[in-house]
Nucleic acid binder design. Structure first.
Lengths: 347, 347
DNA sequence: TTCATTAATTGGAACGTTCCAAACTGTCAA
DNA sequence: TTGACAGTTTGGAACGTTCCAATTAATGAA
């Protein structure tokens, strides 16, 4: 039963050539005669030979394996990201170790170490929360190309592909202003992350640009989840001078914000403008459909993988920072539809 | 920069022992003296030695790598499945090649071949549509443990973990009957798949058990997608004797069916009962919230991985077929809420 | 004939581990 | 003094490839 023991020497013997010749055939060298190539090919098929890439990697001390480590595969944003990477990695003839860390930095450390032992040629990492530059330093110093995606790690000189959180947030806020809102909040997300900081600065800058209030009390941080959204909006509703619209840290928070508004008998998209971030799949089908900043995660994944492969092939390389552009997708939750209706009546 | 060249002999030289001793330390053998163990350990850390698992695998001709191949990672059902597997594989000290096939059987063949060349110890496969027994035969015959998950491949004697489609479908239909429906359709899905067949038989059996019509015209197949759901419900609405409720092949189809009903001014969950299958994340938040058959994909993934590891460790093993139980989650789309309201009024 | 040239093939030494059998230490009993 | 024994350590041969230098065979020119 377990017979997968046929090696290149077995093939050589059966074909009446030397192992070197078989090796040459395997790598499609032009040195070998057509006749022998055919004969060897036939024997390979007949014997059910399977190439041992591990042995080859050992000899050549290089591999066609890349590591992909993602913080949360159950989040469709990161799943799409992974699929994008998978596509380009596969078509380049590479294969990937892929692991999910569930936002656990320790686990992340373990899988990266394990991948290293297995001899990966490069790593794409969507870091778990709490990842520090020190965690990654040894890997980076070893000269293995690393590309960070979706989230950055401050203090680490390494390539990255992130979305333009600043521009996205600013666009969303400008849209709300255009709809007539003058007091706008920023809800949800942990305020110690780089992503939060970037989006929040976009929010602030757009408000200031319009000469509006951008004070600290308008920024309410919380867990970046649905529950966090509920919590944040409750705190917001307790304010004396209530905002009339909010930009949320991400779509999950936005859904929570909608829940929270409804329990307070405020209808999102009618009485209050809500905008999310990421454009997860559910955003389109939710009620009200969520206005959100879309970031094409699959495209980001593809770009990250391309960057990594480029760095693997170049012997030497410099860290490169790519910023994926974003666009505002206007649906219902911001109240734009309502305004159009009002205008139609007025006209 | 690229210096990762330190091997076990370098460590041995630096520590003043032989490479054999270092190897012993590496595998935590009790043979080695505490003093030497400590010294070697220190040198290892100092030199930044990284273990070359590829070389070890070559020598021992076995690996701690498993393959996970999934047909569609962007589908949250399969993403959850993958995360479940990831958990148990990681905690068992294994690492996984993981690849997405996008339902492409050719690509699936390629990645499996590649994983084999890299020396995986076993494979968990959620097969792409159109996978035949012949595609997998060589792998299975080689003695490498294979576990199929979510979908089965007919004619292949290999372990599998699937959900109980028959019981789930039957439970859903019984629920609809209990709500007073007498004419029920089965909508969506390709009728040449094993999963379709199983769910459809559950549908039929429940109808016959209640003495209701279970004729062929009530089964309308289509693509197992949202668009397929729309198409199927349109065909259903053209029937002279219209059904009043439907069990859908999966949740995506169910969403499409709701769309289609609405375009015909029929309100799902009020004028027509809809039940889905799989309980994807969106099912809970959709409007109306989808009544559906829940299958705990993460749990299935865990069980599949456990089964695979068991078979890897057992030298010899028999194919084993696990059936994951399912439960009906009653929400709004079936009309149960409506009925309760009616009953309250009547009472 | 002889020699250079090209085309095709080959043996053996790597690559970084593990494993086996053998070889060192001491210690203690005979 | 010898031998038995346990506790440690070790050299070299694998594992299945690739690569280099070297060999052989065939052809053609001198």
């Amino acid at each position: 039963m377990k017979q997968s023991k046929v090696t290149v020497v077995d093939v050589a013997r059966a074909a009446g050539v030397s192992k070197s010749t078989v090796s040459l055939v395997l790598q499609g060298s032009s040195l070998v005669n057509e006749g022998t190539r055919a004969k060897v090919g036939a024997v390979i098929r007949e014997l059910g030979y399977v190439y041992n890439r591990g042995a080859a990697n050992l000899r050549q001390s290089k591999s066609k394996i890349v590591g992909i480590v993602v913080n949360d595969l159950t989040n469709s944003f990161f799943a799409e990201l992974a699929v994008g990477m998978d596509m380009v990695v596969q078509s380049a003839g590479y294969i990937q170790f892929m692991a999910n860390t569930s936002e656990n930095a320790d686990r992340q450390g373990e899988v990266i170490a394990s991948m290293r032992e297995h001899g990966m040629a490069g790593l794409i990492l969507s870091p778990a929360r709490g990842t520090t530059a020190a965690d990654l330093r040894p890997l980076v110093d070893s000269g293995i190309p690393v590309v960070l995606v979706a989230r950055n790690v401050p203090g680490l000189k390494v390539s990255s592909v992130v979305s333009d959180g600043h521009a996205g947030a600013a666009a969303a806020v400008r849209h709300l202003i255009e709809l007539g809102h003058r007091r706008i909040a920023f809800l949800g997300g942990f305020n110690d992350t780089a992503v939060f900081d970037e989006r929040m600065r976009g929010f602030r800058d757009a408000l200031q640009e319009a000469g509006l209030n951008a004070s600290d009390e308008l920024v309410i941080s919380s867990a970046p989840s649905r529950a966090g959204g509920v919590a944040a909006v409750e705190r917001m509703l307790a304010m004396v001078d209530r905002p009339t619209a909010a930009l949320c840290f991400n779509d999950a928070v936005a859904f929570g914000v909608c829940d929270g508004l409804r329990s307070a008998r405020i209808e999102p998209g009618v009485d209050f403008g809500v905008i999310g971030f990421d454009d997860v799949i559910e955003a389109k089908t939710a009620v009200p459909a969520l206005t959100t900043v879309s970031v094409d995660p699959q495209g980001m994944g593809r770009r990250a993988a391309q960057l990594l492969l480029k760095q693997i092939n170049a012997g030497d390389f410099d860290a490169e920072a790519l910023v994926a552009s974003v666009r505002l997708v206007v649906r219902e939750s911001c109240g734009a539809a309502q305004r159009m209706k009002r205008e139609a009546v007025t006209a």
